[in-house]
Amino acid sequence: MSLTANDVKKIAHLARLGIDEQDVESYANDLSGMLDLMTQMSELNTDNVSPMAHPLDQIQRLRPDVVTEHNQREHFQAIAPQVEDGLYLVPKVIE
């Protein structure tokens, strides 16, 4: 199973991940290698097996509908890259 440079670029775009052009080939090789590992799994018959998303048989606990968090804007925004008037700023989004 082989991934092309183009495949890598498409995936990188989905993940909004900047990759240097010179590294694309090596990522393609690495990923192809990982995918080769994966093919081992196809040897195993899993027709009647249900997927396991969590290791234990737990069910979701419910939280009472109570407000427990209060305004900590200053505290949280102290570590923000760019804020103004209490808003997080990003380059303009065009809709």
């Binding site: 509908d65 109570v66 804007r73 949280f76 925004q77």
Partner: peptide, 27 residues
């Protein structure tokens, strides 16, 4: 129309000053 958010304990009240009802989980 819950009082708090679906996955955190911050308030859902409408009209608050920006980011005053965004707790760590919401952020």
């Amino acid at each position: 129309a819950t009082k708090s958010k679906i996955f955190s304990g911050a308030s859902t009240a409408y009209g608050a000053e920006p980011n005053t009802q965004a707790c760590a989980v919401d952020l």
